[in-house]
Design a protein around this nucleic acid. Structure first.
Length: 420
RNA sequence: GUGGGUGUAGCUCAACGGUUAGAGCACCAGGCUGUGGACCUGGGGGUUGAGGGUUCGAAACCCUUCACCCACCCCA
C-alpha cells in the first residue's frame, strides 16, 4: 500500500517545535492584552474577490500564489493568503466600526500561498496578526513597534534590525509614480526583464529588485521618501521622534516597499540575518485607504503580521514551568485497579501521573519511566498491597521510601518531596 | 515558475556496477523470576522515493516523475 504523504509545502509540527509555537503565542497574547487588543477569529476561506480588491490585482500574491478554486455551488473561493483582508471584511460586516471608535484586534492562524517551498517559506504558514482601526496618530505607529520590541525581548531575541520607511499617501504616490516612470523610461534597456514589466504596472517595486544592475540604477534614482507631501513628511518625522523617545533604534530604509497594494505611509519590517533568504519575520504598515476602498467609512488603519514559522526558527530556549512528572508502575491485576483512583487524585491537584497500559515487567516500566523523564515512580505490587504501602522512587537520586496506600493522604505525603 | 543539491531501516549515515544492502542511535526481549540510566547477547524492522531503460548483474549508470533542502523570485 502506498502511503499518502502531506502536500508539498504543508507540514506537521510536533515535539519541541510545537512548544516554541505555543510559547511565542503565549508571550504575544500577554502583551496584546496589556496593550488593549482583543482577539478576532475569521474564516480561512473567503470570497476570492475580497483578496483581489484589498491586496491588489497586479501583486504576485493575487496573480499567481493563491489557493483559489470553485466550491460545489460554483462560487470562486480562496484560502486566505494574509489576514488583513478578512479582518477588514469582518470589521465592516460585524459593524465594529460603528460600535467603537478605536478597534485594536489580533488574530492567530494559518495562511496559504502557493509558492515554491524554501527555508522559512511554506505553502501553509502561520501568522500572528495585529490591526488597529480608527487612529492616524504617528504615536500609534511607534506604539506598535514598541510592543513588538517588548515581545521580542521577552522571547529572548536580540539580533534583529527594524527597518522603516514611508510609501506616502495616494497623492504623493501618484505624483512620484509619474516622476519615476519618466526617470526609468530613459534608461529602461539596462533594467532586468522583471523590472521592465514593473515599470508599467508597479514601478515602486523596482526598488525591491535584487538584481545587481537594477540595484545600481535605482540607487541613483530619486526615492519616494524624498518626495513625500508635507503631511506625510510630518507624520513620518513624528513617528521617528516617538521611537527615539522610547529608545528604539531603527534603520530608515528608503528602498523598503511592501508587496501588497493597500499600504500607505508608514511601513516597517523586522529582519534577522539568521534566517537565510527569507529574512523578514515581522512586517506591516499603515493602510489609511483600505477600509474605505472595501466599502466602509473613511477609517485609517495600521497593522503587522508576525511570521510564526520564521520567528520560531530564531527561538533558542523557552521558559517552561517545571512541574514534577510522576509515574505509576504496577504489578498484577489488583495493583492495576489503583491506577485510575490515583490519577484522579493527581489530576484534582493539578499534577501529572502517567502509566504504561500494556506493561509487563517492572523493569520495562522503569525503563519507560526513565525515557519519559519521570521524576518519581510509584511502585505498587502484591507485597505492597498486603503491607498497605506504596513505594516512591526518586529517579534522579535513585533512593526510595514507603508511604501509606491511602488515596486521601497520597498528595500531602508526596508534596513534601518536591515542594521545598 | 527557474536553477543547483539530495533521496538507502523510525533517526543519522555506510556500501568499487558483483554473495542474502550494513553500522550507530532508537525500539523490544533476555542476562537480572519485583527496580531505570552503563554493559553484554539476541530480535523485529527495507519494494534502496516511484516508474521505465542499459547490463550476465543496478542502491549505484541513463531517462521520466515525485518529494525534500538551498538559492532566484516573492513575502510573514
Amino acid at each position: 500500500m502506498d502511503r499518502i504523504k502531506s502536500l508539498r509545502g504543508f507540514r506537521d509540527i510536533y515535539g519541541d517545535e510545537v512548544k516554541k509555537f505555543r510559547y511565542v503565542e503565549e508571550v504575544c497574547r500577554k502583551y496584546f492584552n496589556l496593550f488593549g487588543y482583543k482577539e478576532i477569529i475569521t474564516p480561512v476561506l473567503e470570497n476570492t474577490g475580497l483578496f483581489i480588491r484589498s491586496i491588489g490585482e497586479t501583486t504576485d500574491i493575487v496573480e499567481k500564489e493563491m489557493f483559489t478554486f470553485k466550491d460545489l455551488s460554483g462560487e470562486s473561493v480562496t484560502m486566505r493568503p494574509e489576514a488583513t483582508a478578512g479582518i477588514v471584511r469582518a470589521y465592516l460586516e460585524q459593524g465594529i466600526f460603528a460600535k467603537e471608535r478605536i478597534s485594536k484586534l489580533f488574530s492567530i492562524g494559518p495562511m496559504f500561498r502557493h509558492e515554491r517551498p524554501q527555508k522559512g517559506r511554506y505553502r501553509e504558514f502561520r501568522q500572528i496578526d495585529v490591526e488597529v482601526f480608527g487612529i492616524n496618530d504617528p504615536m500609534l505607529d511607534a506604539e506598535l513597534i514598541w510592543m513588538t520590541t517588548l515581545i521580542l525581548k521577552e522571547i529572548g531575541l536580540e539580533n534583529y534590525t527594524i527597518e522603516v520607511n514611508s510609501v506616502g499617501c495616494s497623492d504623493c504616490r501618484e505624483h512620484f509614480r509619474q516622476m519615476i516612470v519618466g526617470y526609468f523610461e530613459g534608461i529602461k534597456d539596462d533594467l532586468c526583464e522583471d523590472c521592465k514589466r514593473r515599470l508599467q504596472r508597479n514601478p515602486l517595486r523596482i526598488f525591491d529588485c535584487k538584481n545587481t544592475k537594477c540595484k545600481e540604477i535605482s540607487a541613483s534614482s530619486p526615492f519616494l521618501f524624498d518626495h513625500l507631501c508635507e503631511p506625510c513628511k510630518t507624520h513620518f518625522n513624528d513617528f521617528i521622534r516617538h521611537l527615539e523617545s522610547l529608545g528604539i533604534k531603527v534603520n530608515i530604509n528608503k528602498r523598503l516597499v511592501r508587496g501588497l497594494d493597500y499600504y500607505t505611509g508608514t511601513v516597517f519590517e523586522i529582519v534577522s540575518q539568521e534566517l537565510g533568504s527569507q529574512n523578514a519575520f515581522l512586517a506591516g504598515g499603515r493602510y489609511n485607504n483600505l477600509v474605505e476602498s472595501m466599502g466602509g467609512p473613511k477609517v485609517p488603519g495600521i497593522g503587522f503580521a508576525i511570521g510564526l514559522d520564521r520567528l520560531v526558527l530564531l527561538v533558542k530556549e523557552i521558559k517552561e514551568k517545571i512541574t514534577p512528572v510522576f509515574f505509576f508502575a504496577y504489578l498484577g491485576e489488583r495493583a492495576k485497579k489503583f491506577i485510575f483512583p490515583f490519577m484522579e487524585e493527581f489530576i484534582i491537584n493539578n499534577l501529572k501521573l502517567l502509566y504504561l497500559p500494556e506493561a509487563k515487567s517492572l523493569k520495562s516500566q522503569l525503563r519507560y519511566a526513565d525515557s519519559i523523564r519521570a521524576d518519581y515512580v510509584l511502585i505498587l505490587g502484591e507485597d505492597e498491597i498486603e503491607k498497605g504501602i506504596v513505594i516512591v522512587r526518586n529517579m534522579s537520586k535513585g533512593n526510595q521510601l514507603d508511604i501509606p496506600l491511602d488515596v486521601s493522604t497520597l498528595i500531602p505525603n508526596l508534596q513534601g518531596l518536591f515542594e521545598k
